[in-house]
């Protein structure tokens, strides 16, 4: 499912709204989640999961083209942990 399919599905769920409302809603939700993560805040969606940042310490890497060593600075990377309901619903394997 892509973002445009998600928008179409939501628009179908809310016949009283115009498609533009679904589109703006999806954009607002995604932008807000990205902004909050970038500002170091957690996101907790009950039944879905949580997003947080994981720390990666600085390390010595290599340029794969030239083989020369490069210092890779410390950084934070986004991390997602699925919530209970999502975990249980996707794990319906026999």
């Amino acid at each position: 499912m892509t973002k445009s399919e998600l928008i179409a599905n939501l628009a179908a769920r809310f016949p009283q709204l115009v498609v533009k409302d679904a589109e703006l809603s999806v954009k607002a939700i995604i932008d807000s989640m990205a902004d909050n993560l970038a500002s170091g805040e957690r996101i907790e969606i009950r039944g879905f999961g949580s997003f947080s940042l994981n720390y990666r310490p600085p390390r010595l890497g290599r340029n794969p083209k030239t083989g020369s060593k490069v210092q890779v600075p410390e950084k934070y990377v986004p991390h997602f942990k699925a919530g209970k309901e999502l975990r249980e619903r996707v794990d319906l394997v026999e």
Partner: peptide, 20 residues
């Protein structure tokens, strides 16, 4: 079991890295 994994887009990764 079947599990969900999330891979942040390059855009989100950059946004987080730049903010920090």
């Amino acid at each position: 079991r079947r599990v969900v994994t999330f891979h942040a887009s390059q855009k989100l990764k950059l946004k987080v890295e730049e903010a920090y």
